[in-house]
Structures are given as C-alpha cells and as structure tokens.
Design a protein around this nucleic acid. Structure first.
Lengths: 154, 154
DNA sequence: TTTTCTGCAAACTGTTTGCAAAGGC
DNA sequence: GCCTTTGCAAACAGTTTGCAGAAAA
C-alpha cells in the first residue's frame, strides 16, 4: 500500500485553502494563517484545546474564540471536517481526498488512531445512493481498546 | 389526557435489560423503570432533552440528572449506545442485535434517520481484525441533506 | 433498619457571542 | 477610511455532581 509517509511536505490543501478563503471574501489574518499551518501539519483530528496548547508551545498563541471561529469558517467551506468521537468533545482535521480516513477510539484512554479501508469506502459509496438523502460526507468510528490499554489491563 | 400511545410489542431487550440491572446489583427504581420503557418504545436515537419532553408529556416526568445517570448505567452495561451526530449533543438508543443500525443526519434541519446495510457491516467486521484494537463496537454517520430540505431548498 | 435511588440546584466544561481595539486592503 | 479580524470576557447549553429526602430491600 503505497508508503507516502512524508507529512512535513506542504500539502496542496494548504494553498487550496488559502485560495478558497480569499475567493469567499475573507481577508488574510494572522490567526487564520497560523491555524491553517497547524491544520496542515497535523495527521489526525485534534480538539480545540489541543490546538490551543500546540500553538502556545510554538509561541504562536491564538485566542480560543478565534480558533473556533476559523474552524467554523473552514468547515463551512468544506476544508475541514469536524467530528465527535465521544465525550462530547469536537475534533477537527483537514479535509482532502488524499487525507481521507476514519478513526479508532480507545474507550479506556481516549486515544484516537486513523485507519483507511477501500472496501468500506466502496460500501458506503454504493449504499448512499439508496437513502433519499443527498449524501455529502460520512464518518466511521470504531470503538474498542488499544493495544497499550489491553496490555496494561486498564 | 386519556389516550396514551399504544404499547407496541415488548422487545426482549426490555426484559433482558431489567434482568441485567438486577444482576449488576441495581434496585428497581421508578425513574429507571420509566426510562427503560421509553427506550424500549423509541425506534431511533434521541437526545436527553427530547426524552425529558417525551416523559413530561406522558405525565411521567423524571429529573434530568436521573435521565443522565440511568443512561450512563445502561451504557456501561452495554444495553444502550451513546452517539453524537453533530453539534455536540449526545443521543441514546437501545443496543440489541435486532436493533442495530446507523444514521443519516441532515445538515440543514438536524433530522436523524436510521438505515442498515449488510455489505457495510461485513466490511467493518473484516477490517476490524487488522487494526491492533480489540474492536467492541462501531458507528457510521452519513451527513447530507434530507429530501425535505432539498425540496425546500433550505 | 440500611442502602440505594431520585430530584433539585449548583458547579463544571466546551462552545458561542458582544464588543472594542488592531489589522488588512 | 472602511470593513474585517482578533482577543478578551461574559454568556450559554449540555452535562455532571453534592446533598437531603424518598423509596427499595
């Protein structure tokens, strides 16, 4: 399964996102740019609090309200996916064809781990047709216990 | 007053749930029994607020804290599934082999509609093996626009 | 009795909003 | 200069918790 592990490379998502924001009439703001960079770097969904901490430790603090506002804008434009995997806490990650995946959530420690599966994607694509809905997206969450928690018997 | 909703076929879930609660050392409380009845009747996931309203209109009001507490107990015992389909609001529905399904969520009006698909289930079952997790459950959410909202162009 | 269950209200936590100052164009 | 963006703090909403009285065993 093609081993593209380089996550540091600036994705096309980063430039596409900026262009779409401009098209949509948004201006180039400091907080927004910082958040785009952060989203571009992260490989899986994070909470707002996690993002806030990450930004603070980079000395690029952004007000919490701004994080929420920017993420909301990006979600409206379809550039970011919001998902909730439990405990009512929202997580966000960039939305791009080459970044599509689903999530395993450990019910003991809360760890979130991405996975992909082509059979699953095809099943979802074909069943979507018969629903009466105009399906625009989907997410799959598998709940269970991660290897570490099983080993530690937590 | 007067006519209450006709009680449909009592599922085996209803009796099983009561037995398991007793086994687990719980006593037979009024609020708990009322909530079991409600869950047994409902066909798809509801929010706590919806349940509270439903109970009030049946003249069977239960304190909100009790609803949360009972649902939490039931979830621990694997009798109820908690899921979040957006907007950070939790929904709950009974968990039983004959009641397993997934959800379509309208992004315009928030409507939630159940669906099932065998191909999807099989895909999830077979991919679970290769994850390193001990997978105990899963949920699939399709996002989109329901027929009504598409028609009304909302 | 002893212990659990329940309802109320207060506390908590993630999220949203109002507003004045800073910043882009 | 006009309008958007930002950060702060206050407001909000769903959820949890402490506690005293009611109810089950």
């Amino acid at each position: 399964m093609g081993a593209m592990t380089a996550t540091e490379r600036p994705t096309s998502w980063r430039r596409d996102a900026e262009a779409r924001l401009i098209d949509a009439g948004y201006r180039r703001g400091g907080a927004r740019t910082t958040i785009l960079d952060l989203l571009d770097d992260q490989r899986c969904a994070r909470t707002v609090l996690e993002m806030e901490d990450a930004l603070r430790s980079r000395d690029q603090s952004v007000g919490r309200a701004s994080i929420y506002r920017v993420l909301d804008e990006l979600e409206q434009l379809g550039l970011v996916q919001r998902l909730e995997v439990g405990q009512g806490i929202a997580r966000y990650e960039r939305l791009a064809p080459d970044h599509h995946h689903h999530h395993l959530v450990c019910q003991s420690c809360g760890a979130v781990q991405p996975f992909t599966d082509d059979v699953l994607e095809r099943a979802i694509a074909s069943l979507s047709a018969g629903t009466g809905f105009e399906v625009t997206g989907h997410d799959v969450v598998l709940h269970g216990r991660c290897a570490a928690c099983r080993a530690g018997d937590r």
